[in-house]
Amino acid sequence: MTESGPLALSPAMSDALARWLETEAATRDRSDHTITAYRGDLLAFLSFLGGYLGEAATPKSLASLTQSEMRAFAASERARGFGARSLARRQSAIRSFLRWISDREGFDLSAALSARSPKYARSLPRPLTPEQARGALDIVSTGHDTPWVSARDVAVMTLLWGCGLRISEALKLNGSDWPFREALTITGKGGRQRQVPVLPVARDAVAQYLQLCPWPLVADEALFRGVRGGRLDSGLISAALRKARAALGLPPTATPHALRHSFATHLLAAGGDLRTIQELLGHASLSTTQVYTGVDDAQLMSVYRAAHPRS
């Protein structure tokens, strides 16, 4: 579905969409992946409106949107095979755009915005156990023919597991961030900054990598380098963990992001409180962090069912 198809956007709508995406990227620190997804969400919605209303959607035509059009779009997406979770995510992007454009154009879209999103059961994160995480790091430490590359991969993964960083956050670190102090200042989603304590094991892993790395440490250049000296690509960390996953027989959910999940889950199991974990992870809402209590409860019930004499 493209803007040049039979239901092409009007120039005014195309301009509005581009401006909204620019605003999301600039003020909310959305990733390129998220902006691409948002663009697809809005093109799907606006193209649907063009067919439903019989003419290309314009900013002014959106002023008359009601729950009826929103429900019709949801029904159309379900008919195309969209599940509740995917549809809820798509509708969230659409609502953000509609709120933005209603403020910009000065009309009231409360009727359309009152349409409910589909309910769905949030899937629980799937962290690694401490033993699985240690085993994966052990394999990664010897997983590459070039020792400094192995040390680099271990250092990145140790930051994910030991500090709860997103992989994008770890790979944004520059030479000026080293040497690590007691805590790192991390800028996460939405431009939110947080202080993340650095464990000695993480500091030692990065120090070992830097000792072996053939590239000089430069203040305004990447801390973690690719073999050609550029900023490390996250896909290489995923590939290293994928090899370790295969060697250990771990499920496909054992990804770099699962190491961040592991940080939160292991901290909660050790007695950490949700508010502190929320701050360490950089979650905007406590409800996002609360999903980890479900992981802890699920693990507890698994142990109970396996061990209880009446099971």
Rank of each mutant, 00 (worst) to 15 (best):
S102Q: 09
D103A: 14
D103P: 00
G106A: 11
D108P: 06
D108Y: 06
S110I: 12
L113C: 13
S114G: 12
A115R: 01
A115M: 06
P118H: 10
K119Y: 11
A121P: 00
A121D: 13
R122C: 07
S123D: 14
S123Y: 08
L124M: 10
L124K: 08
P127V: 05
L128H: 10
P130G: 09
E131M: 03
G135C: 07
A136T: 08
L137E: 07
I139N: 06
V140R: 00
V140Q: 00
S141D: 09
T142V: 14
T142Y: 10
T142D: 09
W148G: 03
V149N: 00
V149W: 00
S150Y: 05
S150D: 01
A151Q: 07
D153L: 04
V154G: 04
V156R: 01
V156F: 01
T158F: 03
G162Q: 05
L165F: 10
S168K: 10
E169K: 00
S176I: 11
S176A: 14
D177Q: 05
D177R: 02
W178F: 13
W178M: 09
E182M: 13
E182G: 13
A183F: 07
L184A: 07
L184N: 02
T185S: 12
T185K: 09
T185H: 09
T185D: 09
I186S: 05
T187K: 14
T187D: 06
K189L: 10
G190Y: 13
G191S: 12
R192C: 01
Q193C: 09
Q193F: 08
R194G: 12
Q195P: 03
V196R: 08
V198I: 13
V198T: 10
V198L: 11
P200W: 14
V201L: 01
R203L: 03
Q208C: 04
Y209W: 05
L210G: 01
Q211T: 15
W215Y: 15
P216L: 07
P216N: 08
V218W: 06
A219S: 15
E221T: 13
A222C: 10
A222S: 14
L223Q: 01
F224V: 00
F224P: 00
R225I: 09
R225F: 10
G226Y: 06
R228A: 10
G229V: 15
R231A: 15
R231E: 08
L232H: 03
L232C: 05
L232Y: 04
